[in-house]
Amino acid sequence: MVVWALVGGPMLLGVSFMAAYSLGLAGLLAHGLSFTAWAAVLRDRVTWISLGFSLWVGAASLGASIVGALLVLALRPAAAMAGEAVGVTPWFLPIAVPPMVAGLTAVLWLGNAGELARWAYALGWIRRPAEFPSPLYSRDGLGIIVTQTALVLPFLVVLFGRLARLHRVGELVEAARTLGASPVGAWRRVGTPLVLRAAAPTLGVYFLALSGAFEIPLLVGASYPTMLSIRVVQLFGQFDLSTRPQAYAVALLYTLVVAACSAIVLRARPRAARSEGA
């Protein structure tokens, strides 16, 4: 089938090549089957720290975005839902921002010599750029998380608003209110679970995509620890080929983790898609 071939073909090609290269069976450094690269990668603490750091950044960015988007939806449902009917609200704008530009903007706004630092100086709060508490390049990944949240939160406001309308969440929340739920209780017990359940597969894919982000960590991330995507490119090297087998091993390891996670995430079809078949 065409779809399988066009998407699955290249993926399979990539995976088999990563496996072959990391095991010394293909590529410029092929000297026959060897587990050296895998042993090095699996024994290296940096591999696991990078993996953990990637998952932390993905979870924190997505978590902050979900909480923020739900708050927006609960506080100003009309603002979020109006967007669909009448064109574009400000919530759409971050969708138009490439990650590379988001990273650049973060540098220009939040960096030690960025615009906010200059305002802080003008207000007499700091004397030198180094005194500005910039979240960028911090080892906890705060700069990456802040930048990714700024991109994802507005998208989730739009997505949640759309799903809420599709599943008539507004009416159901009202029904809960007439049954005696408080405004907060109605959103907590009815609105939030409905929206999150409908959005679950998309959020799962988003979590993995945020964990595998490249451009934003490249621009605003610390040199250590790094996200796994950065680690792969470091090992891959542009000129030095000696660590390439390790790069392929890390990349394959990550592929397997993501493939397994996304299989779990996508196992259940969204309700809307399922009920449509009849």
């Binding site: 998407v7 699955g8 993926m11 595998g212 392929y248 592929t255 996508l266």
Partner: peptide
């Protein structure tokens, strides 16, 4: 198939690029 179609997005483009 749904899993396969979402995989390129869930997977970092870097990893896809390195593989290809």
């Amino acid at each position: 198939l749904r899993w396969l179609l979402h995989l390129p997005f869930a997977l970092s483009p870097v990893v896809l690029g390195v593989g290809l």
